[in-house]
Structures are given as structure tokens and as C-alpha cells.
């Protein structure tokens, strides 16, 4: 029986440098659980694509620190790649050939049934354009064809580098739905990178945040949401803001903006304590709102050298 918490991707202190002076990746310890949708987030140039390239053996890993499906990549290349579908940066497509031919090339090497080609074309809504040369495709169509190629062999692991790049809002929603469906129906583990949290926030179960070659955060999306509550600002309005400022100013960092007091909270318990302190001091609370704490803000905070322990 397969272990539910089996790690599909695991790296141990993964490091990478193009030359000995500058490390591009430092101590990356990725843990991607089986069946998860892992969002790998980071601003442009953070090291996402480099990490993916190392994971897939497209960049060297002298320390042999990558394990996929519990196997070392170097010694089990063929076996591992049979189980992986990938889309790295812009799709790799032969533009002088049709969409169908592009799929058929990968199909032949992966020894997949010919019936699968129309199925994946339908899945990414490219059936009508299958016979057209890829050079006539729009960026979004190319992206979808790249995804179809990755899905062709019904892989156990999908590694997608910025899969919604170049797609219009409808296209983004469609791809999100498609990935969620594949994950739920086939149990496919999905590792996808993005530089925008909002693009993938709705579908991921786990998140890894990378910046300047270092993994700043790794955990489930719910853990990240909890973390967000610890680092938030509470906006309150009372019947006596001056007294409230005196009461709270001793314990918290408080600023006054118009009719509101803005208090920096370190934890969820802080919020309860603040309300409690005000009530005990007979101050009526008209409003208490958490502000500036969406995940995007947190992500931006982290990647602006806001290191979260």
C-alpha cells in the first residue's frame, strides 16, 4: 500500500551555481507531498526556473540532492521521466509542424496510445486547431498545447513553470479548473511555479516561497493563512480613541489615522486581548477590522526580505 504522505519531490540542501562565486540556489529543502498542488512562488529572478531545471536534470546537481518518487534522478532517469509531465518556461514546440504532430512526437516516444492525442486536444480545447501549424497559434494556444503535451501520458507528477503565462483571464480560470480536476480525479501531484500569488492561490494546497535563491517559506496554504493573521494590522474605532490610545499604547505599536487606531498585531490572540483591554477599561468598540493582510501582501512582505521564521 502506498504511503499517503509519500514525498514525490524532495531536495536536501539543494545548491546551484553557474560559477563558484555566486550561488543561485542555497539550501533548498523542498518537500512535495503526494497528491498535493504545490505552488512555487517567487518574484522574477528568484530561482524558480533554475530550481525546476535542476529538479528535471536540465542543470547539474553535483551533490545528487534531488529525489523524485523516492529515487535519485541520476540513476533512474528513464523510470522517473516516464511518470513526469513538464512544461518549462515557454512551451517547447515545433512551429513548422501542426499541433497534432507535436503531440504525436511526444506520444510516440512515451509509447502512449494514439487515442490519447484527440483526448488531450479536447481537454485543452484545441481540437479545432489540431491540424494548423503551431506557428499560426497565439501565445495562449501554444501554452495550452504545451500543457496538453505534459498531460499526454497521464503523469503522476506535473511540473509546470508559469503555466498561465500569456493566457487571458478566461484561459487562466480554465487552466486552474483543469489542474484542479486532474488533481482530484487522477490524484496527480502538481508542482507549479508562479510570480503572482493571486494566480494560483485558489488552487494550491501547499506553498513554497523562494526569493534570491532561498526558500523563505514552505507549508500548507492554511498554515500560510494562519501566518497572515499573526502579521496583521487591526483597525479599530471606539467611543474614546484618546483613552484607547493611552490604554493600548503601553503594550502595542499604535498609530492614529483619521477616526481609526491602527494596531500592529503579532498573533491572533493579540486581537482578542486588545478587545478585552478596551472593554475592561469601559471603552466601547464600534469597529474592529483586520487590514493589509491578504496573502499577496504577506508574499510581497516576505520577498522584500521580510524573512519569516
Amino acid at each position: 500500500m502506498k504511503n499517503a504522505n509519500e514525498l514525490i519531490i524532495e531536495t536536501q540542501n539543494l545548491e546551484f551555481c553557474f560559477n563558484s562565486k555566486q550561488k543561485i540556489l542555497r539550501n533548498i529543502n523542498l518537500r512535495v507531498d503526494k497528491g498535493s498542488i504545490y505552488g512555487f512562488l517567487g518574484p522574477n529572478g528568484a530561482g524558480k526556473t533554475t530550481t525546476i531545471r535542476v529538479l528535471l536534470g536540465l542543470l547539474s546537481d553535483p551533490e545528487n540532492s534531488v529525489q523524485l518518487f523516492g529515487m535519485k534522478l541520476r540513476r533512474n532517469r528513464s523510470e522517473i521521466f516516464t511518470r513526469i509531465g513538464s512544461l518549462i518556461e515557454q512551451p517547447s514546440l515545433y512551429e513548422h509542424l501542426s499541433g497534432y504532430d507535436n503531440l504525436d512526437i511526444t506520444r510516440a516516444i512515451r509509447k502512449v496510445s494514439k487515442k490519447r492525442v484527440p483526448e488531450v486536444l479536447e481537454l485543452v480545447k484545441l481540437s479545432n486547431a489540431a491540424k494548423k501549424k503551431v506557428s499560426t497559434y497565439s501565445l495562449g494556444m501554444k501554452q495550452r498545447l504545451g500543457l496538453a503535451i505534459a498531460l499526454l501520458a497521464e503523469p503522476d507528477l506535473l511540473i509546470l513553470d508559469e503555466p498561465v503565462n500569456g493566457l487571458d483571464p478566461n484561459g487562466i480560470v480554465e487552466i486552474r479548473d483543469l489542474l484542479t480536476r486532474i488533481n482530484k480525479e487522477s490524484g496527480t501531484t502538481i508542482f507549479l511555479s508562479s510570480h503572482l500569488l493571486s494566480e494560483i492561490e485558489k488552487i494550491v494546497t501547499h506553498i513554497g516561497i523562494i526569493n534570491m535563491g532561498e526558500l523563505l517559506y514552505q507549508g500548507t496554504i492554511s498554515e500560510l493563512r494562519e501566518l497572515k493573521a499573526y502579521k496583521s494590522e487591526l483597525s479599530i474605532e471606539t467611543n474614546d480613541n484618546q483613552r484607547a490610545l493611552e490604554v493600548l499604547g503601553q503594550k502595542y505599536q499604535v498609530s492614529r489615522i483619521a477616526n481609526d487606531l491602527i494596531i500592529t498585531c503579532e498573533s491572533k490572540e493579540n486581537v482578542a486581548q486588545i478587545i478585552h483591554d478596551l472593554v475592561v477599561n469601559n471603552i466601547d468598540v464600534y469597529k474592529a477590522v483586520i487590514v493589509n493582510n491578504d496573502l499577496e501582501q504577506l508574499f510581497l512582505g516576505m520577498t522584500n526580505n521580510y524573512v519569516v521564521k
Binding site: L58, S78, E79, I88, S92, H96, I109
Partner: peptide
């Protein structure tokens, strides 16, 4: 150049073929 132009080396090298 077909592979360079199409940016397909990275695709070929992650297929299950030596």
C-alpha cells in the same frame, strides 16, 4: 537548429528516452 529554434532540447531531455 530545429531543436534550438523550437527550444525543444529541454523537452527532449525530460522524455523517458536515453
Amino acid at each position: 537548429n530545429i531543436e534550438h529554434k523550437s527550444n525543444t532540447w529541454k523537452h527532449i531531455f525530460v522524455l523517458p528516452i536515453s
